[in-house]
Design a protein around this nucleic acid. Structure first.
Lengths: 112, 112
DNA sequence: AGATTTCATCGTACATTTGCGATAAACAAA
DNA sequence: TTTGTTTATCGCAAATGTACGATGAAATCT
């Protein structure tokens, strides 16, 4: 421990990107997001019909997406209508697109 | 169970996207990918120096990224040089960009 | 051969995720 | 009020993820 190497701490953007990515890390949740991105909004019941998982499990996946800030739910008794989170979806899009659109300057050089 | 509702099975692309996203679901792994995207390649030791985690933990994160197909390791004794996976990185980029660049046709209509 | 460097893997501990059925909460309809 | 509909939450079990130190494997250098 003689060398005081400055350990890097992740930036807010990196943490945010990881949070979004983690929430997207399940096929069912990708499917839900894809659906919401395609057809504006849906109810939990729509998903229960089209996805072969228990209602409680789907509700849980919705919670993961909601906690990550990717979707939002509007209570419309007796149903709940889900949409993409209007504030955060554009943020997620920006973070991912920036992340993947970065082009390296040089191909692959080794020096150390 | 009278209604035979066709339960949707995720497409290969959806599964692939979820796999990539899952691997990206940790700030350290985002940081590693960012580094590799910026500066072509690196050795495990470089990461051990700059990230405040045990060497074994970093090696584990590298394994997650390698198993997901996002990076590849070239054994260059006594070191191992990591780069983005040349085959899959463009695939990941395409999947994410397609996913986020889809624009819905209508804002939000409810009918059912 | 012995010591060193670099990295992966093993074993362990704890936390989180995933899935289910059962139950609760909120409201509409009879 | 009772019944039905819709959704969230609880409790549980199994699997997976995260982090660490210790150990092992492979190659280099004395």
């Amino acid at each position: 421990m003689s060398r005081t190497t400055a350990k890097v701490v992740y930036s807010a953007d990196e943490k945010q990107l990881a949070t979004f990515a983690k929430a997207m890390g399940h096929p069912v949740r990708i499917q839900i997001l894809k659906l919401l991105n395609t057809q504006a909004c849906c109810y939990t019941g729509d998903l229960t019909d089209s996805i072969a998982l228990a209602q409680s499990t789907i509700s849980q996946h919705l919670k993961v997406l909601k906690d990550a800030g990717l979707i939002q739910g509007e209570i419309l008794p007796p149903k709940v209508k889900y949409c993409l989170n209007q504030d955060n979806w554009p943020v997620a899009r920006r973070l991912f697109i920036e992340f993947f659109n970065f082009e390296p300057s040089q191909p692959c050089n080794s020096d150390s």
